[in-house]
C-alpha cells in the first residue's frame, strides 16, 4: 500500500529523512514512531506529495507517486496533526465541499452516518470557527472517511482528544481496519500505538531503525524471554533437568514458583511446557514478562540501535 525506496529529504544540506525504506502491507495497522523531529511528518508530507523528496521513490497503492498524480490520492484519506479549516463554513458545508471534490455518491447520507459515528451530528450547522480542537479532529476524521478510502494516513490522530473521544476514534479506526482498510498511524502516544497497531516502524534522526511486528521488535531487543511459571507442587526436583535444556539460559526456583529465562531465537514456551508435563509437573500459570513498546522505543532511539538487517531495507517489491 505504501512503500518508500531510499527516500531522502534534505533542508539546506541537513538530512531530515535519510534513505528511508518503509513498507506498509495491505490490511496493516502500521504505527510510525519516532521522537519529535525524527522526520515522521516530513516523511508523511512526501508520501502525500506535499513536499518533493530530494531523492528516492514513493509507491502509493501500487503506483509510483509522481508530481501532480491525483488518482492514488483519491483513494486515500488523511488526518493531519493540526487541523485547518475554512472557518467561515459550517461543518456540513465543509463536508459537502469535500464530497464534491472527491465525487462522493450519496454524500448526504454518508455525512449523516459519519457525523453520528463521531458524535458531531448536533454540531453540523455550527461554523468551524466555533469548533473546539477535539471537534475539529473528529471532523477531520469524517472528511478523511467520506470517500471510503482504501488507505488512511493518520498523523497524531488522537493528540487533541479527551479519553471518551480517543475511544470513539480508536473504535472507528479498528472498524475501518476490519472493513479492509489499511491504516498508517504516526504517533508519539505509544500506548495507543501498542493497542492499535500490528506492525511498527521506528524512525530516529531521519533513519528507519526498526520495522517489524511489535513482538518481533521486542524479541530482537531482549536477549532472553522471561517466564514466570506456577507449578502444582514444589519444583525442587527439576533443577538438574532444567540445566540440561539448551534453550534455557538460567532459572530460579522458589517452592512451586519457577522463573526461567529462555533464548530468543524462537518461541520455546510450548517446548518447555511439554517437557515439564512429561516430567510429571502440571503448569497452573505461565506468564511471559514482556518489554513494553515504550521500553523498546526508548532502547532503540536512545541507543540508536538498528534492528534492520543489511539488505532488508530497499529489497521490497513495490506493492
Amino acid at each position: 500500500m505504501i512503500q518508500t525506496v531510499d527516500l531522502t529529504k534534505s533542508f539546506n544540506g541537513t538530512k531530515a529523512v535519510d534513505s528511508l525504506n518503509l513498507k506498509v502491507e495491505e490490511g496493516d495497522i502500521y504505527g510510525f514512531l519516532g521522537p519529535n523531529g525524527a522526520g515522521k511528518t516530513t516523511t508523511i508530507m512526501m508520501i502525500l506529495g506535499l513536499i518533493p523528496p530530494t531523492q528516492g521513490k514513493i509507491y502509493l497503492l501500487g503506483q509510483e507517486l509522481k508530481p501532480n498524480q491525483v488518482e492514488p490520492k483519491r483513494r486515500i484519506g488523511v488526518v493531519a496533526e493540526s487541523q485547518y479549516f475554512y472557518k467561515e463554513m459550517t461543518a456540513r458545508e465543509y463536508l459537502q465541499f469535500f464530497s464534491e471534490l472527491y465525487q462522493v455518491a450519496n454524500a448526504e447520507k454518508k455525512i449523516n452516518t459519519l457525523m453520528e459515528a463521531v458524535g458531531l451530528e448536533k454540531d453540523q450547522n455550527k461554523t468551524l470557527g466555533a469548533y473546539s480542537k477535539g471537534m475539529q479532529q473528529k471532523l477531520a476524521f469524517v472528511r478523511a472517511l467520506l470517500h471510503d478510502p482504501e488507505l488512511l494516513i493518520l498523523d497524531e490522530p488522537v493528540a487533541n482528544l479527551d479519553p471518551t473521544s480517543i475511544k470513539q476514534i480508536r473504535d472507528l479506526i479498528e472498524e475501518q481496519n476490519r472493513l479492509g482498510k489499511t491504516i498508517f498511524v504516526s504517533s508519539h502516544l505509544l500506548s495507543e500505538v501498542e493497542r492499535l497497531c500490528h506492525k511498527v516502524g521506528i524512525i530516529h534522526q531521519g533513519k528507519l531503525l526498526a520495522e517489524d511486528t511489535m513482538d518481533n521488535i521486542k524479541r530482537k531487543l531482549s536477549d532472553s524471554i522471561h517466564l514466570e511459571i506456577e507449578l502444582d507442587r514444589e519444583a525442587a526436583g527439576l533443577e538438574s533437568w532444567l540445566q540440561g535444556l539448551d534453550f534455557v539460559q538460567n532459572f530460579s526456583i522458589n517452592q512451586n514458583q519457577l522463573t526461567v529465562n529462555l533464548k530468543t531465537d524462537r518461541d520455546y514456551r510450548s517446548d518447555l511446557s511439554r517437557a515439564i508435563y512429561e516430567k510429571g509437573w502440571l503448569i497452573l500459570a505461565m506468564q511471559a514478562k514482556e518489554m513494553s513498546l515504550e521500553e523498546a522505543f526508548l532502547t532503540i532511539t536512545q541507543h540508536n540501535i538498528s534492528l534492520l538487517t543489511q539488505g532488508e531495507a530497499g529489497n521490497h517489491e513495490a506493492k
Binding site: L48, G49, L50, N68, R74, S82, Y84, L101, Y102
Partner: peptide, 16 residues
C-alpha cells in the same frame, strides 16, 4: 499560512 492549501492537496487537487 492557514494550512487549508495542504488539506486540499491531500486529495485530488494539483498545483495546476
Amino acid at each position: 499560512e492557514q494550512g487549508t492549501l495542504e488539506v486540499l492537496f491531500y486529495g485530488p487537487v494539483t498545483s495546476s
